[in-house]
Design a protein around this nucleic acid. Sequence first.
DNA 1: GCCACGCTTTGATACGTGTCAAGCAAGCCT
DNA 2: AGGCTTGCTTGACACGTATCAAAGCGTGGC
Lengths: 248, 248
Amino acid sequence: MTEQTPTLHTLKVSCSNCSLRELCLPVGLNREEMAQLDAVIRQSRRLKRGEYLFRSGEGFRSLYAVRTGYFKTCVSSQDGREQVTGFHMSGELMGLDGISASQHGCDAIALEDSEVCELPFNRMETLGRDIPSLQHHFFRLMSREIVRDQSVMLLLGNMKAEERLAAFLLNLSQRLSARGFAAYDFILRMSREEIGSFLGLKLETVSRTLSKFQQQGWLKVDHKHIQMLQPEELKALVAGCAQANSLR
Amino acid sequence: MTEQTPTLHTLKVSCSNCSLRELCLPVGLNREEMAQLDAVIRQSRRLKRGEYLFRSGEGFRSLYAVRTGYFKTCVSSQDGREQVTGFHMSGELMGLDGISASQHGCDAIALEDSEVCELPFNRMETLGRDIPSLQHHFFRLMSREIVRDQSVMLLLGNMKAEERLAAFLLNLSQRLSARGFAAYDFILRMSREEIGSFLGLKLETVSRTLSKFQQQGWLKVDHKHIQMLQPEELKALVAGCAQANSLR
DNA sequence: GCCACGCTTTGATACGTGTCAAGCAAGCCT
DNA sequence: AGGCTTGCTTGACACGTATCAAAGCGTGGC
């Protein structure tokens, strides 16, 4: 109970069959348990950019873990307003919201050609009863998602445009560097509109705010290519108003 | 997997020892399983208005289910901005966000004299392995929380003040009537400021919007006493922009 | 009972972000 | 290559909500 929060992802992404146990299930299983888990995890599925992994309302059977690529998840209202609820990169799990009603509660869309592992939930649940640490890990993952959602609420409820964008960029930076990529030089995989939707802003505001950061010398923005020149300044901006960097 | 989403609460709140199995765990357990569960659930704890049930950062050991009374949960940033993440009434569970880091991620504060049941999480987890339907129920509850958080994001990211407040009132109305209270005539347990914090608005805006609803004849507002005179109008306002009424 | 305090309402004004519109750059198709 | 589409930037302006301020109303304490 006192261990560190689990690293959801390691740097070694490209294994053989399905490297998922390394990615999102670092639970300390023994050899036999590993085998059981492998038997349950389905071969990975490939998606092209723009393809739906699942849609809101579809029957829920499986969770999906990103192996490679990039996803967004979003809920939309009847009149077409769309709210991006998260961006998901390698090692991250999608579909947890589907358990409650046995149907998916959001859309998951690939932002680039991607690959996911399918985790049939029934079987994972059964397996969790045999492997306590696996069960515990799943509870932790779901709880983690709740914590993340709470910090998004804090962001949407309290922060100004500049603070939101700074928090967003810093969060991206942190997650990328945790995966072995450069922390301060990266490519955005999503459009300004999608960023805006996530942050509760219009795309013009996102664009203007990026420009402002650039003018101040904090960033270099070349379309989707972002270089953080003075990350400390961005951190100073969100220091105070963020509880943690658990956005995603 | 195809059953209805569980009613988290029944109308019979005042039982003997701990009526929690009726409230938040309607899982279809047999007599022996019930006994096991009863053995794990701790005696209820009473709190006075304003008292903290737990605080962000405290060690996490238990989930808490509201037996009677009313709570708010909130996260706060270092510089003191507070975001109310939810209001909780009888039968609802608090503390799920604490599992991930083994410490509570928010504060839980009684809005009136209240009573909760303590559910030691370790023991519940163990019990879940013996009672599959209990385990499944917990996954559902957590997933449900994630779904709720997503609709709050939609609200905070996309909706205007009037829509937010209408959605909030309708959600309250629905939850109260599910507990056997009048749907269209109730007392707010929280201040304007707390409503505002939850909805991402300032208290003045909440007040003004309530006044506006009253002027239009949709509500009668007498301090904390709300009567919904034309709920259809409120519904019309949120129709389209809400995906479901799963705020809380 | 009265006073003091907290909560709420209401008004005037300011500010931030949305909206609308135009122009630009990059990528894609024929 | 030309012309089209798509996404991005930038400007002018409008609108919604925040901010500041003052006054009203209830409630609880003495």
